[in-house]
Design a protein around this nucleic acid. Sequence first.
DNA 1: TATATGATTGCCT
DNA 2: GGCAATCATATAG
Length: 189
Amino acid sequence: MLGDRLVHEHPTDGPLVGRIVETEAYTGDDPACHGSSLHDTANPQGADARASGLFAAPGRGYVYLIYGMHWLLNVVTEPEGTCGAVLIRAVEPLAGEEALRRRRGPKRRDVDLTNGPGKLAEAFDVDKTFHQADLTQPPLYVAPGPVAADETVATSSRIGISNGVEREWRFYLKENPYVSRATPSAEKQ
DNA sequence: TATATGATTGCCT
DNA sequence: GGCAATCATATAG
């Protein structure tokens, strides 16, 4: 999904477009995944549990409120009935920057608009509205895009989790300045 | 029904 | 570099 475009045809701010430069993967047998407990135990398709969205059909949105203040945007990737999704952690603004900046606040630097999962969700006006929405159709969708020849896809362990840390399922474009800097040191290549 | 915790960010020292 | 904000979901009583 790196290089793909995240497009939000916003009703008042016009088209907002970002290039995906950082992602993380989560699946059902992964202790860091919200659906893993369901995977092991109860009925996975339980009606309105938060994590049930992870078992939806591929291409659906999985939007999750973390720490009571930030929305994280995921795209469900596994077949219906299987738990799995990709977290979009950072994008590079391609269009609608004025709107992104206005929503994020006037004193944000360019890079600070979208270089984190909570930041990009706020900038793109993504919230629970898009939970389980179809991300192959407007107003919010992902369109295929290229990775340039001079760009390097790097991997590392995932950020901000306490389980499954050993899995290096974070993918990002190494030279891109819009990749989140995570917590200080633990950057790998 | 009550309490603990997290796929984060931003403001504090 | 450290910590508070704030709420949906999970787990305990």
